[in-house]
Amino acid sequence: MSRRGAVERDERGAASVLVLALAGVLVLLGAALSVVGAMVVDHRTAQSAADLAVLAAARVLADGGDACGAAGRVAAANGADLTSCVVAGREVRVGTRVSGPRWLGQRGDLEAEARAGPG
């Protein structure tokens, strides 16, 4: 048996280990990117709900109604919780919150704020 045959036999399976390691890294990277994508979507949901809620509140306030009640209904209809509603004169500020992705023990919720009014 030649020296070259012994070396080839010792390296058999080395590529399989490398492929498995790279596959594991790619799976972990894909999972992390999925969580980041979910966080972006959830933040956009919170911001959209805040924007729509504050516009509804401003409209109801202009008509003399319950602005914060309208904001709460619109936020809930858009999948968010109303966390704050402040009416100061003709200005309305609202805050909303949606549940963030739960991965590896993360517990953070995503929040957004919006304002409507003159000036």
Rank of each mutant, 00 (worst) to 15 (best):
M1F: 13
M1L: 15
R3I: 09
R4M: 10
R4C: 04
G5C: 09
G5A: 15
E8N: 03
D10P: 01
R12Y: 07
R12P: 00
G13M: 15
A14P: 01
A15F: 09
V17K: 09
V17M: 14
L18I: 13
L18E: 14
V19N: 06
V19S: 10
V19L: 15
L20H: 08
A21V: 14
A21Q: 11
L22K: 12
A23R: 12
V25F: 12
L26D: 05
V27D: 04
L28R: 13
A31Y: 07
A32P: 03
A32D: 07
A32C: 12
L33Q: 04
L33S: 09
S34P: 00
V35E: 06
V35I: 11
V35A: 09
V36M: 08
V36C: 05
A38E: 15
A38P: 00
A38C: 10
A38S: 06
M39D: 07
M39F: 05
V40D: 05
V41H: 13
D42P: 00
D42S: 11
H43V: 01
R44Y: 04
R44V: 10
T45C: 01
S48L: 12
A49M: 11
A50E: 10
L52N: 02
V54F: 02
V54D: 02
A56R: 04
A58C: 01
R59E: 04
R59Y: 02
R59I: 05
V60T: 15
A62N: 09
D63F: 03
D63E: 14
G64V: 06
G64A: 04
G64P: 06
G64M: 05
G65L: 08
D66N: 04
D66W: 04
D66K: 07
D66S: 00
C68D: 06
C68M: 08
C68K: 11
G69D: 03
G69M: 10
A70M: 05
G72R: 14
G72M: 02
R73P: 00
R73S: 03
A75L: 05
A75S: 15
A76W: 04
A77K: 10
N78S: 02
N78K: 06
N78M: 05
A80W: 07
A80K: 07
D81C: 00
L82S: 01
T83D: 13
S84A: 14
C85Q: 07
C85W: 03
C85F: 01
V86E: 15
V87G: 03
V87T: 11
G89V: 12
G89I: 13
R90H: 06
E91C: 01
E91P: 00
V92N: 05
R93Y: 05
V94M: 10
R97V: 10
V98A: 02
V98E: 04
S99Y: 05
S99M: 08
G100S: 11
G100W: 12
G100D: 07
P101E: 10
R102D: 12
W103G: 00
L104G: 06
L104V: 10
R107D: 13
D109F: 03
D109C: 02
L110D: 07
E111P: 00
E113S: 09
A114H: 08
A114E: 13
R115A: 12
R115T: 10
R115V: 15
R115P: 01
A116T: 07
A116V: 08
G117V: 08
G117K: 12
P118M: 09
G119K: 09
G119H: 07
G119L: 14
